[in-house]
Design a protein around this nucleic acid. Structure first.
Lengths: 127, 127
DNA sequence: CAGCATCCCCCCAGATACTG
DNA sequence: CAGTATCTGGGGGGATGCTG
């Protein structure tokens, strides 16, 4: 089923794992989602407002990582007070679409997840 | 682009996020992968061997979570010494397939990720 | 064999304060 | 406005020892 794995080098495998892990984590996913919904570049403070519950430090850190990974573009307008805008790269948009399809699949199968737990509880009760 | 999001409740959204985050994390992903490759139930000690670098505590914890999420089945054979086998549920197999397709997409686009970084470095150099 | 219990450590999220 | 700098605590994770 995963024969394709043998056709990738360890390095490719490792990088892909890291990218999945980072993009699917809590804050990165929410930031990408917000940026996608906005359909326009967002300032740092707009992101702080829309990504509810994030701290300013973590927002900065996460944006830096997303930038390094090539998923987000940071544009600094040298003025006072400074203005910085963030937007998805085409690649970031594409990656998010892939993650979203996984997301959608999970939502559509939430009932199955519930069913699994129900079976397990029944089995436990009978044991 | 994400209009489907409006058709899901906050609870669905939250659960899907958690499931993505947990399934895409480092250890869970590797464990699911190993179980899938094995094509047969694996004992605890076999998993310890094949999931390189994992500690016994983390393996236990992760397996418990995967079990709770309905992705893995744990079977205890009451004998001395005890024998415990783990295998994917059909749902776990399906979910892994979804994650793997995302994985495959990333590997196929690793060059694009590199290109993104190259562009960024050039832009920085010109600035 | 397959774990649970315990101890320990380190990292990082989060809060607060400050700055160009 | 968009960050850095600094401090702190809580938790994840490693190592070790014990048990049914």
């Amino acid at each position: 089923m995963f024969d394709f794995c043998s056709s990738m080098t360890d390095e490719q495998d490792g990088r892909a794992r890291e990218l999945i892990e980072r993009a699917a984590a809590k804050w990165p996913l929410r930031i990408l989602h917000v940026l996608s919904d906005a359909r326009a570049p967002l300032r740092f403070s707009r992101l702080m407002e829309r990504v509810e519950g994030i701290s300013q430090k973590v927002l900065t850190q996460t944006l830096r990582t997303l930038e390094r990974d090539g998923l987000v573009i940071r544009t600094l307008y040298p003025q006072v007070p400074p203005r910085v805008e963030y937007e998805l790269t085409p690649l970031g948009r594409d990656l998010l679409m892939q993650v979203v399809s996984l997301w959608r699949w999970i939502v559509e199968h939430l009932d199955d997840f519930d069913a699994c737990k129900a079976v397990k509880l029944t089995a436990t009760a009978n044991a």
